[in-house]
Design a protein around this nucleic acid. Structure first.
Length: 295
DNA sequence: TGTATTTGACCTCA
DNA sequence: TGAGGTCAAATACA
């Protein structure tokens, strides 16, 4: 049996066990919070299982598709592979346009090119860090308006900022995150909602991981993490796709809305954090500590 | 006048 | 050979 199949079965067994617990709770009048916790755990388990299954299915679809394409190479769209040096750290997400029309991620960018992309309606813009020459900062980003939703921009970050010039908002920010499992051809998305200190949502971003990126840039998942600090506080222990997340859930973290309680623990970001590090600080939301995805 | 953006040309790679 | 990425001169803007 394949590793991922075992994981899916584990997930479903956990779900069954929690459902039983819930049933017992309902028989013996237990606290509403406790029941909510169980319900949310069960829902999340099934979401994980569905995601795992759909991902495997998608991998097979892709594999078959490539095999078919290989027979008719004339119809294959030759896509340039990203060179090794650029695959070290790639962050892909979908950003919403700011009121002033820019996509402010806290860093200063200089546009250095724009290209029409074959098969895409919208051109891709190329930006590099303003401090490339003054501080030898090699960070680069590519921005392309989404074909499907013109209000969204697909932003790809390549390389890390080594400059110290940051213009991000100076407020403490909290985030809530939820996983939405969507049709494979629309990508698999992690929705990130930025919250003010009073926990009112202020901005919403969506991390979209495409099938292609899953295949080609396995490090993407690893690039989203929360620091150990948050994990130590028990905030992000409920990592998605980890088989033992149920044990990690403490009752103290439960009690809010079903979809948010699992993942919406307030992860405070220090004032000095930039939006760039904000995205990189999401690194451990999805912690594929097990290699089932890439086997 | 200095800085940022635009855009055609050129380079790289599959 | 063609798509994607980068360069750099021309241009725009504050």
């Amino acid at each position: 049996m394949m590793m991922e199949e075992k994981l899916v079965i584990n997930e479903l067994e956990l779900g069954k066990e929690l459902a039983n617990r819930l049933m017992n709770n309902l028989k013996h009048t237990s606290s509403v919070d406790s029941n909510k916790t169980l319900i949310s755990d069960i829902l999340r388990i099934y979401q994980n299982a569905i995601f795992m299954l759909s991902f495997n299915q998608d991998k097979n679809i892709l594999k078959r598709s490539l095999e078919i394409d290989g027979k008719d190479s004339k119809n294959v769209f030759k896509k340039r592979k990203v060179s090794e040096k650029n695959t070290e750290k790639v962050k892909v997400f979908v950003a919403t346009e700011q009121e002033n029309g820019s996509i402010d991620d806290g860093h200063c960018w200089r546009k250095y090119g724009q290209k029409e992309i074959h098969g895409s309606k919208n051109p891709r813009a190329y930006y590099r860090c303003t401090h490339r020459f003054t501080q030898d900062c090699l960070a680069v980003k590519q921005v392309q308006k989404s074909d499907t939703d013109p209000s969204l921009f697909e932003v790809k970050y390549l390389g890390n900022h080594t400059c110290n010039n940051i213009t991000s908002p100076k407020t403490t920010t909290n985030f809530s995150v939820s996983l939405t499992n969507t049709n494979i051809f629309e990508g698999n998305r992690v929705h990130v909602t930025e919250q003010s200190e009073d926990m009112k949502p202020t901005k919403s971003e969506e991390v979209m991981i495409s099938l292609e990126d899953l295949e080609n840039k396995k490090n993407i998942f690893r690039t989203f993490s929360f620091s150990n600090h948050e994990i130590e506080n028990g905030v992000w222990k409920s990592n998605l796709f980890l088989g033992n997340f149920v044990e990690d859930l403490s009752p103290a973290t439960s009690g809010s809305a079903i979809t948010s309680e699992v993942l919406s623990a307030p992860a405070a970001v220090e004032n000095s954090e930039t939006a760039d590090s904000y995205f990189s600080s999401l690194d451990n939301i999805i912690d594929f500590g097990q290699d089932w995805l890439w086997s």
